[in-house]
Amino acid sequence: MNVTQQYLLDTYRAHHLGEAAPPQPGAHDWQVVREWRDRREFRAVLSGRLARGRARRLWSRRLRPRLRF
């Protein structure tokens, strides 16, 4: 049984029991990503490293056109 089938079965059961429908699969994915990022930044602060800007600096170096003289 895949995720969609399980979701439809749970929705059907909830409807017949008069309960609230379960959240759709993937509805909270971005929230999980944000919590993971916050935890990573928190652990960086505890270990004495900078928590913000590391990824931004990395991508700006990679995406910025290099000046050649």
Results as ranks from 00 to 15, higher is better:
17 L>K: 11
3 V>D: 05
18 G>P: 03
23 P>T: 03
27 A>P: 03
62 R>F: 08
16 H>E: 11
7 Y>W: 10
23 P>M: 06
28 H>R: 12
60 S>M: 10
69 F>E: 10
1 M>T: 14
17 L>Q: 13
57 R>A: 12
22 P>Y: 02
29 D>T: 13
40 R>D: 07
18 G>Q: 01
51 A>W: 00
60 S>A: 04
19 E>C: 10
18 G>S: 02
31 Q>A: 10
35 E>H: 07
6 Q>H: 09
6 Q>W: 01
37 R>N: 13
49 R>L: 14
15 H>G: 11
60 S>G: 01
15 H>R: 15
21 A>Y: 00
23 P>R: 06
11 T>F: 02
60 S>H: 09
33 V>F: 05
69 F>T: 08
16 H>K: 15
32 V>L: 12
4 T>K: 08
9 L>I: 14
38 D>Q: 07
31 Q>R: 08
36 W>T: 14
44 A>K: 11
3 V>E: 12
66 R>I: 10
66 R>H: 08
9 L>P: 00
61 R>P: 00
16 H>Q: 12
44 A>M: 10
16 H>P: 00
63 L>V: 02
11 T>R: 08
10 D>I: 02
47 S>Q: 15
14 A>R: 02
27 A>N: 04
16 H>A: 08
24 Q>E: 04
27 A>V: 03
63 L>T: 03
60 S>L: 13
36 W>E: 15
49 R>N: 12
56 R>I: 12
35 E>F: 05
7 Y>D: 03
46 L>I: 04
34 R>I: 10
47 S>R: 15
56 R>C: 12
41 E>L: 07
45 V>W: 10
34 R>W: 09
30 W>G: 14
32 V>K: 14
55 A>S: 14
38 D>G: 05
9 L>C: 10
42 F>I: 01
57 R>C: 09
66 R>Y: 05
27 A>W: 05
33 V>M: 09
1 M>A: 14
37 R>P: 00
28 H>F: 15
24 Q>D: 00
14 A>S: 09
34 R>K: 11
32 V>P: 00
41 E>Y: 03
64 R>A: 15
67 L>A: 08
67 L>C: 03
7 Y>R: 01
18 G>I: 00
20 A>D: 12
20 A>H: 07
11 T>W: 03
2 N>Y: 01
54 R>M: 13
26 G>C: 01
59 W>E: 11
12 Y>L: 15
25 P>I: 00
51 A>D: 06
39 R>C: 02
67 L>M: 02
3 V>W: 02
37 R>S: 08
15 H>C: 11
51 A>Y: 01
32 V>D: 10
